[in-house]
Design a protein around this nucleic acid. Structure first.
Length: 433
RNA sequence: GGAGAGGUCGCAUAGAGGCCUAGUGCGGCGGUUUGCUAAACCGCUGAGUGGGGUAACCUGCUCCGGGGGUUCGAAUCCCCCCCUCUCCGCCA
């Protein structure tokens, strides 16, 4: 239900090659094809028996209505025949169900083949396609060292990691004063940018989803351990707004005139990040709860390639407005996720930690997610529905963006100069404590 | 949370064990008529999954919120769950 069985039958070689490129086992493809054959044959056999039983039942009903006693031997013969057929059908159905669920499981293990223009290889094969702005050096000419954001934030009193740890746990930062206002302003800036200038429709989604939705976007069964679960009510805290927003159209057929559909949504994002700790996670670089503005697109299949490039551009505009230097990375086959056909990461330069921080990931899923969620469109009025394409991208994720802002905009007097785009909301500076 | 009423083809509605191959109306599409529009009339009008055919098309089966059960046979009877509405309770 992810890579379609039809495509698998038609184009097994390409699916196999795609799995190899992503470092996954291509054996699943052949297993799935074998199970598919068994399912179809058994199902056809059961269908024929069903047709036969229907006729027998009808004859029996007709006989009784014509005056035959329900207990007569003619009727009894028909009844026995029908019962016998029913037993055989039940046995075949069991095989079909078993094959179907085996097939569903196998299909979930077959990755979305990467696009032809995705570089082949592991993470080292990923390509920086462009860089914008000048990465500020870690130390200026006078030798003044840029501090990492956790030191800046602590000195300013705008992020309290210890209080968050007390209240909720490690990795749940509390933003205070100008820090809280900075969060709010960034969300506002991004939503305004994408709705007013880029034409997205704003969505304010639930922060929890049910298991059907988590399955739809692929969090279950693949990344189940990454989510916080409310077992009592069978709900999951959203790891990204992608989950509730993409599921809006689950099991729907969308008329051609309604496409493209482009949503932008803010949501808190909850991730367990089990086992993560160390240099790359200090401060607010990797936390259990962060905030993100997410763009989600439903597109005609022939447009999704262009839309991916456009989406990357929309996320870039957000970074440019903030004046943050960044680079755009085209991810290699081994670095593209299981469900994505093509993916770009946007990384912002953070001089305090001397690293490029991922603040946006923009992906084209082509028909992979949509098939899983059964989202289709109708190319022509009255025509057959077809699976459409979905894409999404962050625009942007807050925590790391905040880290970069603090490290880039810190002044010699330790205050923070507010980026121009945020001044109408925040004023000119966050004063040193 | 408690009590009641419901969930049937895009929408509305009929259907109460075999005559359902799910009827009818609206909407939509095509046609006839027409100076144009409208009206009238005629026809078509869901999804899934198999089989046959180069194809248009033909054809089997499944689907009446979801899942189980009863029966020779279930939209229809029984059980569980989900959702919607009304009233009550609680509450930002």
């Amino acid at each position: 239900m992810s890579v379609g069985i039809q495509r698998l039958r038609d184009d097994a070689a390409a699916i196999r090659a795609g799995a190899v490129a992503k470092g996954e086992d291509p054996e699943r493809v052949d297993e799935a094809l074998a199970v598919d054959v068994r399912r179809r044959e058994t199902s056809g056999e059961a269908d024929n028996l069903r047709a036969e039983r229907k006729q027998v039942s009808e004859r029996m009903g007709a006989a009784i209505k014509a005056g035959a006693s329900p207990g007569s031997s003619d009727v009894a013969t028909l009844r026995d025949h029908s019962t016998q057929l029913g037993e055989r059908i039940a046995a075949l159905d069991a095989v079909v169900h078993e094959a179907q669920s085996a097939l569903d499981d196998l299909l979930l293990l077959i990755p979305n083949p990467p696009d032809a223009d995705v570089p082949v290889g592991d993470a080292s094969a990923s390509v920086i396609v462009r860089t914008w702005g000048d990465p500020r050096p870690h130390a200026d000419t006078a030798g003044v060292i840029v501090q990492p954001h956790w030191e800046i934030a602590e000195a300013l009193g705008i992020i309290d990691l210890a209080a968050g740890a007390k209240v909720a746990g490690s990795g749940f930062p509390i933003y205070l004063g100008a820090g809280a206002a900075l969060q709010r302003s960034l969300i506002d800036l991004f939503l305004d940018l994408h709705t007013r200038e880029h034409g997205f429709t704003e969505v304010w989604p639930p922060a929890v989803v049910n298991s059907a939705s988590a399955r739809g976007t692929g969090q279950i069964p693949d990344k189940e351990d990454q989510m916080y679960v409310v077992t009592r009510d069978d709900l999951f805290l959203v790891p990204t707004a992608e989950v509730p927003v993409t599921n809006i159209h689950r099991d729907e057929i969308i008329e051609a005139a309604a496409l493209p559909i482009r949503y932008v949504a803010y949501s808190p994002c909850f991730r367990r990040e089990a086992g993560a700790a160390g240099k790359a996670t200090r401060g607010i670089l990797r936390v259990h709860q962060f905030d993100k503005v997410e763009m989600v697109c439903f597109e005609r299949p022939d447009a999704s390639g262009d839309t991916l490039e456009w989406l990357v551009g929309r996320a870039e505009v957000a970074l440019q407005r903030l004046g943050l230097a960044y680079r755009v990375k085209l991810m290699a086959t081994g670095d593209v996720g299981f469900t994505q056909a093509k993916k770009y990461d946007l990384e912002v330069w953070a001089p305090g930690v001397e690293d490029w921080l991922e603040v946006s990931s923009v992906s084209n899923f082509r028909d992979y997610q949509a098939r899983r969620m059964n989202i289709r469109w109708r190319p022509e009025a009255g025509g057959k529905p077809e699976v459409l394409h979905t894409l999404n991208g962050s625009g942007l994720a807050l925590a790391r963006t905040v880290a970069a802002i603090l490290e880039v905009y810190q002044e010699p007097d330790r205050s923070i100069r507010v980026p121009d785009a945020l001044r109408p909301r925040l004023g000119e500076r966050i004063p040193a404590a």
